[in-house]
Amino acid sequence: MSRPVMASLNLDALRHNLHIVRRAAPASRVWSVVKANAYGHGLDRVWNALGTTDGFALLNIEEAILLRERGWKGPILMLEGFFHADELPLFDQYRLTTSLHSNWQVKALANAKLAAPLDVYLKMNSGMNRLGFAPERVQTLWQQLRAIPNVGDLTLMAHFADADKPGGVSEPMQRIEQAAEGLACRRSLANSAATLWHPETHCDWVRPGIILYGASPSGQWQDIAASGLRPVMSLKSQIIGIQTLQRGACVGYGSRYRAQGEQRIGIVAGGYADGYPRHAPDGTPVLVEGVRTGTVGTVSMDMLAVDLTPCPEAGIGSPVELWGEEIKIDDVASASGTVGYELMSALAPRVPVVTV
């Protein structure tokens, strides 16, 4: 048997989460966001489980081509558009919807030789100040794009920085409404948080990402605990070693953790080279033999240590859930000062992955 650390993907949970999205935004079409190799789940492994989506949204043209080669014939939205003008023939060949967020992209699209017009998402900067045109330019750009033969269907697109907060979409929505006043345009505004919590943003297309994979856009599992969303990815391993510490004995690099008394410690096959956060503090939740316990000491490249006090029956070979159905990835991430997005997308290539 190979090293016991392994990730499993529950494709039924993925299908279920797409259903939850449709229930939350019943009047909208759905862009399933599969950027970053489907948030670390593996695009080639999971795209078919999302086959009832209305479209896929991603960043890399290689992933878009993969979807086409696997047989996806529906819309594909390139969230950051093309990065170089010489990519436009591929956009044309594979019929990709491009976002436009910069002047050079508008010019490049106007000058391209295409077999047919491309559908376009005009990206407006609603206050996040990453990509997009200033609101006061939207009207002029809209008319300019309407006059370009290479532009097919046109949709207004924006993004929210604070949709996980109760009033987080109010000011951006005001900017969007003012910028689009008088325009009869389709809109795509809602990310995962807005899809769940701000129905006024749903419009024509929603763009769920993290919620498809069963984690919270706020980083707090309790915020989605009643939503019906289910974790897709589980990271599991086994106990491969046992240590019995005496009072004052240390665990791991830097001797960060010292036993307060006699204590039984389990060594788990799994570390930061597998994607587990190295900066996880003592007490980060772990499940051993179905019992919730916590980590102790600094996470190593290939191993981490857990407190076996709550689970005295545990021994060599005992199953460990690092995150998944019982130990929520958001709880591990929150304890470690990060977000579930990072842990998912950081799953290491050396970890075997199985689909369920």
Results as ranks from 00 to 15, higher is better:
R95T: 00
T52K: 12
G51M: 07
T97W: 08
N48K: 15
K73C: 10
V46A: 04
A64M: 06
L43N: 13
A85D: 06
R70F: 02
L58E: 04
T53Y: 09
T52W: 13
I65E: 00
D119Y: 00
L88Y: 02
A85G: 01
F91Q: 02
L88R: 01
L50R: 12
I76D: 05
N60H: 14
D54N: 09
N48Q: 15
A112I: 02
M78I: 04
K73M: 11
R70A: 05
Q105A: 09
T53Q: 02
P117Y: 05
S102E: 15
Q93C: 03
G40W: 11
R95I: 01
W72E: 04
R95A: 04
A108L: 11
L88F: 01
L77E: 09
A110G: 05
N48F: 14
G42S: 12
G74M: 10
G81H: 10
I61W: 04
A116F: 05
Q93I: 05
G51K: 11
M78S: 00
W47M: 12
R45T: 05
F83D: 06
A108N: 07
G55C: 08
A108V: 04
K113W: 00
M78W: 06
L50K: 11
R70L: 08
G74T: 03
N60D: 11
Q105R: 04
A85N: 01
N125T: 10
M78E: 01
D86H: 10
R45F: 13
N48V: 13
L58S: 02
L109P: 02
L77I: 07
L58F: 02
L66H: 06
R45S: 13
I65T: 01
N111E: 15
L77N: 00
W104P: 12
F83H: 06
W104F: 12
E62K: 10
P75C: 05
L67T: 05
S126N: 05
Y121R: 05
S126Q: 13
N48R: 15
L88G: 01
N125F: 14
K73W: 07
L100D: 06
G71T: 09
W72L: 10
H41A: 15
A57L: 07
S102A: 14
N103R: 12
D44S: 14
G127T: 01
W104E: 11
N60R: 12
V46I: 15
L59H: 01
A116Y: 01
A112Y: 07
W104H: 12
L109Q: 03
E62L: 10
M124H: 06
L50E: 13
P117L: 07
A108E: 13
S126G: 14
A85W: 06
H84Q: 14
E80I: 03
I65P: 00
G42A: 10
R45D: 12
M78Y: 05
V120F: 08
S99V: 13
N125P: 10
N125L: 11
E69W: 00
L79D: 04
A110F: 02
G40N: 05
E87A: 02
I65W: 00
L50Y: 15
D54L: 11
L88I: 01
W47T: 08
G40P: 10
K107E: 15
T52D: 15
D119V: 00
L114D: 01
G74C: 06
L43A: 14
G74Y: 05
K107A: 15
H101F: 14
N103V: 09
F83G: 03
A116W: 04
R95G: 00
G40E: 09
